[in-house]
């Protein structure tokens, strides 16, 4: 699991600890980059692990940063919660240089925020993990009744949808009436 550290800003991260080396350490020193999420915790990740993310791989492929430059310029992913980014980084480290098996269960141990994880993985374009996550989301409703599916996927009933639509229309009507009244007041 990669070590992380709490940083106050992406511009001046404190010294992070190095991610653990795999059993067979590469002969050529590997380049590292730094990423942080909403919580500003900086993660040091090898370029090899980051190859899983098409988005980050595209960003770093032509940078040619030195270690110091990379450290000084961590990639900010302000739209991703820190714990979610941690899961993603861990997964990328664990699967560095390895093909992902179709039934991958070797994922970081956490018990929440699947929705955010899927969105983050989608944003970071980690294809293998996304496929696996989507499969897991689909598997959630296998063999379930409609009522169970409704609860698991938080699907409103048609009646709830209609009520929400009515409410939205009502609100829009009120807002429009308020604007008209305000405009009339201005005109006077």
């Amino acid at each position: 699991m990669s070590s992380t550290e709490q940083g106050t800003s992406s511009a001046a991260p404190a010294e992070p600890t190095t991610a653990p080396e795999s059993a067979a350490a590469p002969e050529v020193p590997e380049s590292f980059y730094y990423v942080h999420g909403k919580d500003k915790v900086v993660h040091k990740v090898s370029a090899g692990a980051l190859q899983h993310s098409a988005l980050i791989h595209g960003m770093i492929s032509n940078l040619g940063y030195t270690e110091e430059q990379a450290k000084a310029n961590p990639f900010p992913f302000e739209n991703i919660d820190g714990d979610i980014l941690q899961m993603v980084v861990d997964w990328c480290n664990q699967h560095k240089g390895k093909p992902t098996p179709p039934e991958d269960t070797n994922l970081p141990k956490q018990k929440e925020k699947l929705f955010d994880l899927v969105l983050a993985v989608n944003y970071l374009e980690i294809k293998e993990l996304l496929t696996y996550c989507c499969k897991q989301v689909a598997m959630m409703v296998k063999g379930k009744s409609p009522e169970e599916i409704r609860e698991i996927w938080m699907i409103p009933t048609d009646a709830e949808d209609e009520a929400a639509e009515k409410e939205a229309k009502k609100r829009a009507g009120k807002e429009a009436a308020g604007e008209t009244a305000a405009a009339a007041g201005d005109a006077k």
């Binding site: 994922l107 141990k109 956490q110 018990k111 699947l114 994880l117 989301v137 609860e151 698991i152 996927w153």
Partner: peptide, 16 residues
């Protein structure tokens, strides 16, 4: 057990 095979799967997810 992984994040995707544990209790997380029992939690609702706002698919829409």
């Amino acid at each position: 057990m992984s994040i995707l095979s544990g209790n997380l799967l029992q939690m609702p997810i706002d698919l829409l």
